[in-house]
Computed example of a mutant assay.
Amino acid sequence: MELADLVRPEQLVDEILKQNPQLPLPVPVVELATLAGISKIEPLSSQGFEGTLIANAEKTDGAIFYNGTVPRSRQKFTIGHELGHFLLPWHRQTTFECTAEDISSRARKDWEVQANQFSAELLMPKMLVKARLQANGDPKIAHIQELSSQFEVSFEAAARRLIELSEHACAVVFSKDNVVRYWAKSDYFGEQVAVRKGDKLPHKSPSKQAESDPEEWHELIASWWVKERHDDDMPESIYEQTLCQESGYKVTLLSLS
Rank of each mutant, 00 (worst) to 15 (best):
M1S: 12
L6V: 08
L6K: 00
Q11V: 04
Q11L: 03
V13P: 08
D14F: 09
E15P: 00
I16R: 05
L17S: 04
Q19H: 12
N20V: 05
Q22M: 04
P24E: 04
P24A: 10
V30K: 10
V30C: 08
E31H: 08
E42P: 05
P43T: 00
P43D: 05
L44A: 13
G48R: 15
G48W: 15
G48K: 15
L53R: 01
L53G: 07
N56C: 00
A63E: 15
I64Q: 07
G68A: 03
T69G: 08
P71Y: 08
Q75T: 09
F77I: 08
I79H: 01
H81T: 05
E82Q: 08
H91N: 05
R92D: 13
F96D: 03
D102W: 05
R108T: 11
K109L: 15
D110H: 10
E112Q: 06
V113C: 12
Q114L: 09
Q114D: 12
Q117P: 10
A120L: 13
M127V: 14
V129E: 09
V129T: 06
R132L: 11
R132W: 10
A135N: 06
A135Q: 14
N136H: 11
G137N: 07
D138R: 11
D138S: 14
H143C: 08
Q150P: 01
E152K: 12
V153G: 00
S154Q: 15
E156G: 13
L165M: 02
L165C: 02
L165Y: 06
E167Q: 14
V172T: 00
V172L: 02
W183E: 02
A184D: 07
F189K: 02
V195K: 08
K197T: 06
K200W: 15
P202M: 08
K204C: 12
P206G: 03
K208F: 05
W217M: 07
I221L: 13
I221H: 04
W225D: 05
K227M: 15
R229M: 15
R229N: 11
H230N: 04
D232A: 14
D232K: 10
P235H: 04
E236Y: 06
I238E: 08
E240C: 05
T242L: 03
L243E: 06
S247V: 13
L254P: 02
S257D: 11
